[in-house]
Simulated assay, not measured.
Amino acid sequence: MIDITPRAVTGTLAALCALVMGVAIRRGATCTVAAVNEIIDERRCGRLLALIAASTLVLGGLLLAHSFDVLPSLPASAPVTRATVWGGLMLGLGASVNGACALGTIARIGAGQWCYVATPIGYYAGCHVAARALGVEPPLAVHDSPALHASASIAVLLVAIVATFAAGALHSRFARTTRGVSRSTPEEDRHASWSPHVATSAIGITFVLLFVLDGAWTYTDTLADLAQGHAGATCSRALLFGALLLGVTSAPVARAMRGAQARATRVTALQLARCLSGGALMGWASLMIPGGNDSLVLVAMPLLRPYAWVAFAAMSFAIGAASLSCRLLRAHRQRETSRLA
């Protein structure tokens, strides 16, 4: 008879949560860069609100877990310093160079844009160089969180609010689909993307379950721990990263098994260089803040830690400034070209 230990059961459930989270990231194309560009291009903030809703949902879930005394130890926090602001700006610059944030990178890999495999490699290299060669040290740890002093009724209210938004988004999308205006072909209907609110709600729910089962986990934290030589629990965390990647690539794998043609994009040297350098900048910045943008959105911001909100605001500002600068530069070049023509 096979002896199944509680640790094996917990690890399996945690891996399933990471797998589902990967599916949600891929289907929702969750990305801070896309959220900021949506504000600039379309004057809409749906994706940004979806990210904040995910943080709110995680907060409600953590409050409920805390009220039932099943919440594990919290990760360390940090004070707000100048390094927090500079780290947030560098994180946004790195995401702009890369073309996607940490969550968006995983979504791009799932979409068959294989050049983004270089981003985690660059992230690891950036953390390693910053920690070893440049001597960047994480800020002084602070373990308390004001969020967990709220009552369980607040948690229920927060979860209900986010669930209402997600249900509304899902109903709206279903209504558009049934009227036949969402996709042009049956093939596109089968691979229809989730709305941002539905995707981030699924990410928030699975992250809370993962938090209760195995503690706070993000793949960027795993890369940072490996780069700094903290190999204590990185083996199990690396398995979670593998489950996340499996969930993200489930659609391309399923298409390949059916014999369908892969929709991968061509890998170029320029894009590889952008992914490596952008990942390295984000890795370096994560030690200054500390944490990558997935750690900020899913861990530190729900715990109402001020440094996370400051860093995320600085990151969003840097992404917006870089995006506007690129647009102005392209417009100037177009005017020069038309003038010379």
Rank of each mutant, 00 (worst) to 15 (best):
M1A: 00
I2L: 01
D3W: 01
D3C: 03
P6S: 00
T10L: 07
T12F: 04
L13K: 01
L16I: 05
C17A: 10
A24H: 08
A24Q: 07
G28R: 03
G28T: 03
A29Y: 00
A35W: 04
N37A: 06
I39D: 10
I40D: 02
R44G: 00
C45V: 08
A50G: 06
L51Q: 03
S55Y: 01
L59N: 03
L59W: 07
L62M: 12
L62F: 05
L64C: 13
F68I: 11
F68P: 06
V70C: 01
V70Y: 05
L71E: 04
P72M: 00
S73E: 07
L74E: 02
P75M: 04
A76C: 06
R82M: 13
R82C: 09
V85P: 03
L89K: 06
L91Y: 09
G92A: 09
G94L: 12
A95I: 10
N98S: 15
A102S: 11
G104C: 11
I109E: 11
G110T: 12
C115G: 14
V117D: 08
V117N: 14
A118R: 14
I121T: 12
G122S: 09
R132L: 13
L134F: 15
L140S: 11
L140H: 10
L148G: 01
H149S: 08
I154N: 06
A155L: 07
A160Q: 10
I161F: 05
I161N: 01
F174W: 08
R176H: 00
R179I: 07
E188F: 00
D189T: 09
D189S: 08
S195N: 06
H197N: 04
V198Q: 02
F211E: 02
F211P: 00
T218Y: 02
T220E: 15
T220M: 08
D221C: 05
D225S: 14
A227S: 05
A227C: 05
G232M: 12
T234K: 06
G242E: 07
L245C: 11
L245P: 11
L245V: 12
G247D: 04
G247V: 07
V248F: 13
S250P: 02
P252M: 10
V253Y: 15
A254P: 01
G259Q: 11
A262Q: 14
Q271N: 15
S277H: 11
G278L: 15
P290D: 07
G292I: 12
N293W: 13
D294C: 03
S295A: 15
P302I: 01
R305W: 03
P306A: 01
W309A: 09
V310Q: 03
A313I: 07
A313G: 05
F317Y: 10
F317I: 14
L324S: 04
L324D: 05
R327W: 03
L329D: 11
R335N: 03
E336P: 01
S338Y: 06
S338A: 09
L340E: 04
